[in-house]
């Protein structure tokens, strides 16, 4: 509750400053529309904005889900296999040298203007922080626990499943927190490069037609969606960390 209250206060301050800027700088509405105009447009075009928001939300959530699962599985695989570490890890780091944004046009070419190319951008952005943070955690299991497990005659698979993975969940959580920040960026970039739906598409469209109030309305919805995602993922991560932290 306190969290929402703080956000509310910050939002009010921003809106006040925004309105002050519009009033005192006498900005034309096609440069910076007033907050009231934006809310007005938001309400008026709610159905249009909602349908685009739904597309973006699905892209973000699917991207987050697939990227997290793939990143998590990769980390477990790397932790389990020395050969994989030797061969695959350098490739992983190398792929990070390529900005995923630069690949977005290619994905649109290959996968078309639908959701798939956006989800892929989000997946690729999310994949690395999750895999990297979780892998680091998996490789840092406290030695005492591993020793105890070995003396107890643990099967390697059980050792990983019952000690290594749970002990690395707080690290996984830090990767996931980052992923929640990156996921919307990925989806929006994907939409900017080429799309027929989504908030990013709507913003470009509105911008092109000088409908800046619509652009701001879409931006507002995106901000709320992103905040909600941060909040939900953050809560989930808090639970993970609280339970599994040594």
């Amino acid at each position: 509750m306190k969290y929402f209250f703080r956000i509310l206060i910050s939002a009010l301050l921003i809106i006040l400053a925004w309105q002050a800027l519009v009033t005192f700088a006498d900005l034309p509405h096609f440069i910076l529309p007033s907050p009231f105009k934006v809310v007005d447009t938001l309400w008026e075009l709610r159905e249009l904005i909602a349908s685009h928001a739904l597309v973006t939300a699905i892209e973000i959530l699917l991207g987050l889900l697939i990227g997290t699962v793939l990143g998590g599985l990769t980390a477990i695989w790397l932790a389990r296999s020395k050969i994989a570490r030797y061969l695959v890890k350098p490739v992983l780091v190398l792929t990070q040298a390529l900005p995923v944004f630069a690949l977005a046009p290619l994905f649109t070419l290959w996968l078309g203007y639908g959701m798939e190319s956006k989800i892929l951008v989000a997946v690729l952005i999310i994949y690395f922080p999750v895999a990297s943070a979780f892998f680091d955690g998996l490789m840092q299991t406290p030695k005492g626990w591993l020793d105890l497990g070995k003396v107890m005659g643990a099967a390697p698979r059980q050792l990983q499943w019952r000690i290594q993975i749970p002990a690395a969940l707080p690290s996984f959580a830090s990767g996931l927190r980052l992923a929640a920040v990156y996921a919307p960026i990925g989806a929006i970039i994907g939409e900017w490069v080429g799309a027929s739906e989504g908030l990013g598409y709507l913003m470009l469209l509105a911008n092109g037609r000088a409908k800046i109030d619509l652009m701001f309305a879409a931006l507002l919805v995106l901000a709320v969606m992103t905040l909600l995602l941060h909040y939900a993922v953050g809560k989930f991560c808090d639970v993970l960390v609280k339970k599994y932290k040594q």
Partner: peptide, 13 residues
């Protein structure tokens, strides 16, 4: 063999 260390090595979860 079983083994008991200086720290309890209990799993917090």
């Amino acid at each position: 063999i079983s083994y008991m260390a200086q720290t309890d090595l209990l799993m917090p979860w």
